[in-house]
Simulated scan of single mutants.
Amino acid sequence: MKHTLLVTALLGLHLSAQSQTRVKPPGEAPDAPTSHRLFLPTTPAGPECMKAVASSDFVSVSLMHAEDFNELPELAKGDGKPCGELGCLAPHMDGGKNRDTGLHEGYNWPSKRRQQGAYEQQTYVDPLFKGLGLQPFSVKDGILSITARRAADEHTGDALFGGVFTSGLLSTHQRYAQQYGYFEIRAKLPSGADQLPAFWMLPIDRSWPPEIDIMENMVENQISQGSHWVANNASKQSSCKTSFPKYDEGMHTYGALWTPERIVYYIDNVLIGQIQTKPAQHQPFYMMVNLAIGGNYVGFVGRTDPWYPRTMEVDYIAAYSDGAKNCTKSTDSVNKMMTCK
Rank of each mutant, 00 (worst) to 15 (best):
A148W: 03
V53M: 10
A234I: 03
G302R: 13
T156I: 06
D126W: 09
K140T: 09
S239Y: 11
L13H: 08
Q178K: 04
A54W: 03
A234C: 09
S16T: 14
S321Y: 03
D141E: 06
C88A: 10
F129D: 00
C327Q: 01
E85S: 11
A17T: 05
K236F: 11
M287G: 02
R186Y: 02
A151S: 10
G106W: 05
D248R: 02
T21I: 12
H173S: 04
V7N: 06
R37I: 11
D332E: 10
D126G: 11
N296F: 13
Y247N: 12
H65C: 06
I146E: 04
S224K: 09
P73W: 04
Y316V: 00
M93C: 02
K24D: 09
K188E: 15
V298W: 05
S19G: 14
F244Y: 15
T34E: 13
M64C: 08
G106D: 08
Q115P: 09
Y182S: 00
R113A: 06
A193C: 10
S207P: 06
L170W: 07
Y316L: 00
P82K: 11
P309N: 04
L40A: 03
T277C: 09
N221Y: 06
T156L: 05
I223K: 03
L10P: 06
P284E: 08
P309F: 01
Y176Q: 01
N233H: 12
E216R: 01
T331D: 14
D68Q: 02
T253L: 04
G27D: 05
D68M: 05
Y176L: 04
T21N: 09
K278Q: 15
P197L: 06
D322I: 00
L38G: 08
G87F: 08
C240I: 10
L189P: 02
G250S: 07
D100R: 15
S224A: 12
F137T: 09
S191A: 15
P30M: 02
C340W: 03
K24L: 11
G133T: 08
L63C: 09
P210V: 07
T311Y: 03
F244L: 15
V270P: 00
A292F: 03
P210W: 06
E261R: 15
K81F: 13
A9K: 15
Q222V: 10
E105M: 06
G157A: 12
C340E: 07
E249W: 13
P33T: 08
E28V: 12
G27A: 11
S56Y: 13
M251Y: 12
Q274N: 13
R149F: 10
E154A: 05
Y180S: 01
E67Y: 05
P197A: 11
A198F: 01
L10C: 08
Y316I: 01
V7G: 03
L38T: 04
W229F: 12
V334E: 03
W307H: 12
G162A: 07
Q20H: 07
S55E: 02
K278C: 02
S235T: 13
V264A: 14
S243K: 15
Y124Q: 12
S62G: 13
L144E: 03
V334A: 02
P26S: 09
N217A: 10
T172L: 03
D248F: 09
D153K: 14
C88F: 06
F300S: 06
L134W: 02
I143H: 05
S191F: 11
Y124T: 07
T101P: 01
G295F: 07
R37P: 00
Y308D: 14
Y124I: 04
P245A: 03
A17W: 10
G78A: 02
S111A: 15
N290W: 01
N269M: 13
